[in-house]
C-alpha cells in the first residue's frame, strides 16, 4: 500500500498525532487484508474513529480506489486533526468526509459500515489524564489499562458494522488483547490478532473482528 504524503505544520505537530509505528502497523495490516479479502468484498462505506492526521484512512482510500468506489468518513474529537485529515486526503487526491465528534456519539446507528478502523488512545495512564483538555493528551491517554476510551465504543460496534463488516483495532499488550477478543464474544463477534510488532517499549497488535 502506498504511504500517503502527510504534511503537518508546527501547530498541527503540537496538537495532532503524528503518523507513528502504530499507524504504520495498522496500514500494513490493512494492506495484507486488502489482498486477502477487502478487494473482493469491495467495501462501500468505511469509517475511522479518531483519524488524527488522516494517514490510515487516506492510505486505505488510495489503495481501494484501484478496485472499487467507497465512501470514507473520519471522525475525531480534535478540530485540528479534522482539518489535518482534510488536508492529507486532498494532498493524496482522495475524498474523506470528516466530522468532529466524540467517538460514535453522532452517528445514526444503522448497520452501514463495511470497515471500521480505530487506533485509540491506548497508553496506560492515571484515570484523571483521560480528562485532560490538552488535545495532544487525547491522542494517547488511555487511563486504566489504557482501556478507558476504547471500552466506550466496543458495545456499539455491532450497531454500525454491516453484516459482512470488519472492525480493525490497534492495541498494545497492556490493553490485554486476549481479553478484548473474549469481550467481543458477548456481542457474537469473533476476533483475532492479524498483526503484531515489538518496538521500543511497546508491543503493538492489530485485532480484527467480524460477526460469528
Amino acid at each position: 500500500m502506498e504511504t500517503p504524503i502527510v504534511k503537518l505544520t508546527d501547530i498541527e505537530l503540537d496538537n495532532v498525532y503524528e503518523p507513528s509505528e502504530d499507524s504504520f502497523l495498522l496500514i500494513d495490516a490493512l494492506e495484507t487484508d486488502l489482498n486477502d479479502q477487502l478487494k473482493n468484498k469491495k467495501p462501500s462505506m468505511c469509517l475511522e474513529i479518531g483519524i488524527g492526521s488522516g494517514v490510515v484512512l487516506t492510505a486505505l482510500a488510495m489503495a481501494l480506489k484501484k478496485f472499487c468506489s467507497s465512501h470514507f468518513v473520519g471522525t475525531d474529537i480534535n478540530p485540528i486533526a479534522c482539518r489535518a485529515t482534510k488536508k492529507t486526503s486532498m494532498l493524496n487526491k482522495v475524498d474523506v468526509d470528516v466530522v468532529q465528534m466524540d467517538l460514535l456519539n453522532n452517528l445514526h446507528s444503522r448497520n452501514v459500515f463495511d470497515v471500521i478502523i480505530f487506533n485509540p488512545p491506548y497508553v496506560v495512564t492515571e484515570p484523571i489524564e483521560v480528562q485532560d483538555e490538552k488535545l495532544i493528551s487525547k491522542t494517547w491517554a488511555g487511563g486504566i489499562m489504557g482501556r478507558q476510551v476504547m471500552d466506550k465504543v466496543f458495545p456499539f460496534i455491532t450497531q454500525f458494522l454491516s453484516s459482512e463488516g470488519l472492525f480493525y483495532l490497534l492495541v498494545i499488550k497492556e490493553n490485554e488483547p486476549e481479553s478484548i477478543i473474549e469481550l467481543f464474544k458477548t456481542w457474537s463477534m469473533k476476533g483475532s490478532i492479524i498483526a503484531e510488532r515489538k518496538i521500543r517499549g511497546e508491543h503493538l497488535y492489530v485485532l480484527r473482528f467480524q460477526r460469528e
Binding site: 465512501h71 468518513v73 468526509d97 466524540d102 456519539n105 453522532n106 445514526h108
Partner: peptide, 14 residues
C-alpha cells in the same frame, strides 16, 4: 460534508 455523510448523522447524544 456530503449528503451521504449527512444521512448518517444524528443529535441523539444531546
Amino acid at each position: 460534508m456530503k449528503l451521504l455523510t449527512h444521512n448518517m448523522l444524528s443529535s441523539k447524544s444531546l
